[in-house]
């Protein structure tokens, strides 16, 4: 499995205190909000913190939130496109 996606699933479960969900239960393209994992607006803020804390990425435009946080895969795509280069 894609390491970034696997890491994100673990971090989401930990950061959002989803104690009744295992990381492997989250589908790569499963919607995170409402009909998917059922996350709420406070969880959305925690996901923004997660991006900053673990990946040093600040969401440039809040209106991008629904697209970026649609699923674990869309989060991973956003991280890959915006992660600071080390070289």
């Amino acid at each position: 499995m894609d390491t970034l996606i696997a890491d994100l699933k673990k971090q989401i479960v930990e950061q959002l205190n989803l104690q009744d969900i295992k990381p492997e239960d989250i589908g790569d393209e499963q919607p995170l909000f409402v009909e998917g994992l059922g996350l709420d607006s406070i969880d959305a803020l925690e996901l923004i913190v997660l991006l900053q804390q673990h990946y040093k990425i600040k969401l440039a435009n809040a209106e991008d939130g629904p697209k970026v946080f649609y699923s674990v895969k869309t989060m991973a795509d956003y991280i890959r496109a915006h992660q600071p280069k080390n070289d």
Partner: peptide, 10 residues
């Protein structure tokens, strides 16, 4: 002191 937690704030 690090990243203020929204879920604690509420």
């Amino acid at each position: 002191k690090d990243f203020a937690s929204p879920s604690l704030f509420v």
